[in-house]
Simulated scan of single mutants.
Amino acid sequence: MPHSTTVLTPAATITLLDEKLTDADAATPARFLQDHGLTSETLPFWLVNVPRSQWTSECPAFLRDQPPKNVQCLATPDSHYQRQSWEEVQEITRTNRIDRFQRVPSELRKYLEYMAQIKAQYGSVMRFVVKERLGWGDGSLEDLRPRGGPFEYAEDIRILYNDWPYGIDTDIIHLVVWTKFELPDDPATGDLTAEAREAIERYVQATFCSRVAPEQVVWFRNWKSLKSVHALEHFHVMLRRPDRAFVREITNGDVPLIERV
């Protein structure tokens, strides 16, 4: 049965669940559904993985007009989600099928809600990232002007955790390398130019593979259509089972937002 994607929750669904609900069920929706012979398919997607005490009759604004991929993910109970393995990560990056990455359903919900709050407070995600995460001023052109060319000066680069990492195995560390300089695209393909790809590869080898085995390191840059921060250059690095002291060193002790909000 397809999940409801309409704005209003069918009254019958709420009534049925309320009639069967006990106080002990309020914070454990997955157990509640199981105990009463129900499935997540009986719920609109925005109620899955949400405690009954937090249910709403209407879809929250931050979850409206989501693409089918997000709706399908949000409609999946966390208990049914299979984290992507290191082998899958390698295959996704090797084939440049970055669209196959996805988040743990409940974490995707938190991510979408937080992004909506950031846009309302700061006007854009880019301004928040520049000001609060990177410490590069307020996002003016002067603040973001690089001192030199690609990877020439350390002050033009900042390595942080991905605040909202993909739903990959927990022994994989997901980092983002932010840069003030641009990494040009090939207009014919929309992907990095060969020169830009080679420059990133040299940087990754020098920065990460000196402390992590090369076969335990992958990197990729999101397609423009997948970027959450379009106006600020960045690419992703994933490390499998790295030394945590090394990660603290290169991120300057960074803590991702997902662990703080």
Rank of each mutant, 00 (worst) to 15 (best):
E113M: 08
L239C: 07
K110L: 12
Y111K: 09
L38A: 14
R197C: 02
R244K: 11
V212A: 15
P165K: 00
R94I: 00
P256E: 13
Q54T: 11
T189L: 08
S40N: 06
A11T: 14
L108Y: 06
T9P: 06
T6E: 14
T42D: 01
L47A: 02
E152Q: 08
D35Y: 13
G137Y: 09
P184K: 00
L134T: 14
F220H: 05
V204S: 02
Q72S: 13
A12Q: 14
P105R: 01
A26K: 12
T9I: 01
D185T: 02
W219V: 07
R202D: 06
H3S: 03
D156E: 09
L257E: 01
R197Y: 03
E132H: 12
V89E: 06
N49H: 12
F101V: 05
A61Y: 05
H3P: 07
D186Y: 01
T6Q: 15
R127N: 13
E198W: 03
Q102C: 04
S40H: 15
T189E: 00
R211G: 00
Q54C: 06
E152Y: 05
N222Y: 07
K224W: 14
T193L: 06
D35A: 12
D99S: 11
L112M: 07
D35T: 04
W46E: 03
V255T: 15
L17E: 04
A24Q: 13
V218T: 05
N222C: 06
L175F: 05
K131R: 13
P77H: 04
A196V: 04
Q34Y: 09
D23F: 10
W164S: 00
P68G: 08
L63D: 05
H80S: 12
T15E: 01
G190S: 07
V71C: 02
N96M: 15
G190T: 02
F62P: 08
D23C: 02
V212R: 14
H36K: 14
R64C: 03
R97T: 06
P67I: 10
V177A: 12
D25R: 08
R64H: 00
V218Q: 01
K20T: 07
P2Y: 10
L63C: 04
L74C: 05
P77A: 06
G135I: 12
R64N: 04
G135D: 07
R100G: 06
L226W: 15
P67G: 00
R127L: 04
I98N: 06
P146I: 14
A199Y: 05
A30N: 11
I92F: 09
R260K: 13
D254H: 02
R221I: 04
V130E: 03
V50H: 06
P29W: 13
Q72D: 12
L63M: 07
Y161F: 13
P146E: 13
Y203K: 00
D99C: 10
S40C: 05
Q205A: 12
G148D: 09
D78Y: 07
